[in-house]
């Protein structure tokens, strides 16, 4: 399947600790690489314009919007997605906190919320509920799970 006469480019990167080598169109976003090329559908496409956060992943530990990143620019990087969190049957404790606090309804924004929260905790900013809410504001939710999301993050982070 070729979309254009453009060059295709080789790309090597790690996703959830596993090395991947792919050949892609340069215009492929990281989000489309994950979903369309690799079948990793846990990372969601909510707006494709960086305005909803549903596609949040960690690249070298930092949370970014995968829809606003070119895949080819992630050469050599370490990408973490929602699929990399649970250990077999055992949920990651933050995932478990989301279940316990009913921090999801439709579940479409949920992977992005969880990855964003992990990024936030890595940044050392999950200090109190108000701070968590401010720093999580790049992740929209339309069902209205917000207070439970913040409660789940605070419980996991010990804030």
């Amino acid at each position: 399947m070729t979309d254009s006469s453009r060059q295709r480019v080789a790309l090597a990167l790690a996703i959830n600790g596993r090395r991947h080598r792919v050949t892609i169109e340069p215009s492929t976003t990281l989000l489309d690489l994950l979903r369309d090329e690799l079948g990793l559908f846990g990372t969601k496409k909510g707006c494709d314009m960086g305005a909803c956060g549903a596609c949040t992943v960690l690249v070298d530990g930092r949370r970014i919007n995968a829809c606003l990143a070119l895949a080819v620019m992630q050469e050599g990087r370490d990408v973490q997605t929602i699929e990399g969190l649970a250990e077999g049957e055992a949920l990651h404790p933050l995932q478990q906190a989301f279940v316990e606090h009913d921090a999801l309804q439709c579940g479409y924004c949920t992977p992005g919320q969880i990855m964003s929260a992990l990024g936030l905790i890595g940044e050392g900013r999950a200090t109190d509920a108000a701070g968590i809410a401010e720093q999580m504001s790049g992740n929209l939710c339309r069902c209205g799970a917000h207070p439970n999301i913040v409660a789940a993050i605070a419980a996991y982070a010990g804030a």
Partner: peptide, 9 residues
């Protein structure tokens, strides 16, 4: 400005 994700990129 923006969101944490955008500020990181």
């Amino acid at each position: 400005g923006a969101s944490a994700q955008v500020r990181n990129a």
